[in-house]
Design a protein around this nucleic acid. Sequence first.
DNA 1: ATTCAATATGTTTTAAAATGAATAGTGATT
DNA 2: AATCACTATTCATTTTAAAACATATTGAAT
Lengths: 115, 115
Amino acid sequence: MSAKKKYNIRFRIWFYADDDKFLGKGRVELLERIKEVGSITNAAKGMKMSYRQAWQMVKEMNESANEILVEKSLGGKGGGGASITKAGERAITQFHDFEQKVNRFIAEESKKLTI
Amino acid sequence: MSAKKKYNIRFRIWFYADDDKFLGKGRVELLERIKEVGSITNAAKGMKMSYRQAWQMVKEMNESANEILVEKSLGGKGGGGASITKAGERAITQFHDFEQKVNRFIAEESKKLTI
DNA sequence: ATTCAATATGTTTTAAAATGAATAGTGATT
DNA sequence: AATCACTATTCATTTTAAAACATATTGAAT
């Protein structure tokens, strides 16, 4: 007898500004790490990500969104750093909240499936 | 003045069998085309897809799902062909239904966002 | 003015993925 | 047994994406 696999539904959501995708799960994690460690460099190190990639993500996010999500400082003590703006904080929170709502909805609706 | 971009949320869903992803938007379209034209070859031609890729998708779907979604016949009049099984039909329908439900939910919830 | 750790980018290398071409196999029909 | 249009599969090639590497720049602190 072959064990039947259990069907389940997974999803991803993205925040767009007009038609520009600017935020998804991965970028939210990057934002959270920047908030935690105070720099793009160290945030990237914590994930499996090169500084270059992380920096490009930040650039894209800031350029696409109506307000910048990450504020950067150059030079000075410690070489500079990066921090999350109020808009960035809101983006993180609302992304998580939204994701959770969708997750609950999908979990509930999945029960009705007769696939 | 710079025009403010309108924020919006988009999503994708996938059907999994245990931890194997076996159905997403692209594959559903492939299934529909196979149903319509009766062969993998012609279904692939209708999309921007090589026969090779389409054939591999069908193979993966059939292997991952509990029941095969596409039934194939080899040789004979017309060289053979492919058709959708009952399970395949159900998969198509339920994918669309589910996607629509999630879409409505997200559209509704999006109104509450203050991003 | 030198140091330092970070941001800011360009360039090169490597790896992964998609594509295309080529070939074999199938079986009802003629 | 020859044909035909499809499925089935391998292999070499191309394209794309990711990673790695290399520098330049910045500015407070010393």
